[in-house]
Design a protein around this nucleic acid. Sequence first.
DNA 1: TATTGACTTAGACTAGACTCTAAGTGATAA
DNA 2: TTATCACTTAGAGTCTAGTCTAAGTCAATA
Lengths: 121, 121
Amino acid sequence: MTIKEVAEKFDMTNDTLRYYEKVGLVGPVKKNSSGIRDYSEEDLKRIEFIKCMRSAGISIEVLKKYVDLYDEGESTKLERQHLLEEEQDKLEEKIKTMTEALDKLKYKIELYKTNKLDEYL
Amino acid sequence: MTIKEVAEKFDMTNDTLRYYEKVGLVGPVKKNSSGIRDYSEEDLKRIEFIKCMRSAGISIEVLKKYVDLYDEGESTKLERQHLLEEEQDKLEEKIKTMTEALDKLKYKIELYKTNKLDEYL
DNA sequence: TATTGACTTAGACTAGACTCTAAGTGATAA
DNA sequence: TTATCACTTAGAGTCTAGTCTAAGTCAATA
């Protein structure tokens, strides 16, 4: 699969895909005789996972660490699990914060709708 | 209330408070005879609201627009409401995305815990 | 054969949101 | 009265995560 196809499949740019490869999140992707990338099934799975985690706000740095541990092999399994658990905690916290903000936003919109607005901002 | 007290109250830095003022999100804050900021109750309410919205990922740009509309007065009420409704939609979407990522993360952690890991990454 | 178009690289640039620095002022403690 | 400390300013610097540019290669079409 070419970079263009991958980019379209996951709705991201070629640049981002090359960037992920450069920082070591994906690949190194195999290249054909003329130097053109040919993404493997495994590459695609990694990209999907990374895209999903990025959309949740997990940083490149953390993902890179995870990938590196993975590439070190079996011996890092527990450490990887802990890393994911930490991110889970952070993510749950973030969702909680955002849900609270959402509630405040909804309340404020309600004030607008019922014309009860006599507030600051 | 001094900038230091406000920063402590909301767990942010003096720099961030001055930055918010510079870009027009807050204030202009009243200053005493020696040029030192003295935050009013209304300033504090704005800061709280802005901090909450920022923690949900709403951009400075959007918040600035909202604040500007507010300062324009009554006539912008409907526009402000719409702006908030748009942000509500975005926020709900973001929470949904993050919740999906969280589910995947949990699933992956489960695989680690049950030693069923034979996956990519 | 010439040109078009998709790909390649290294590296410079950008946006957003701070964060830090340098130089200065004013109130208070020693 | 001098030093210390918290505050002030303008503006430069930082970090993250891309995004863009310039220059080049290759395969396929006019």
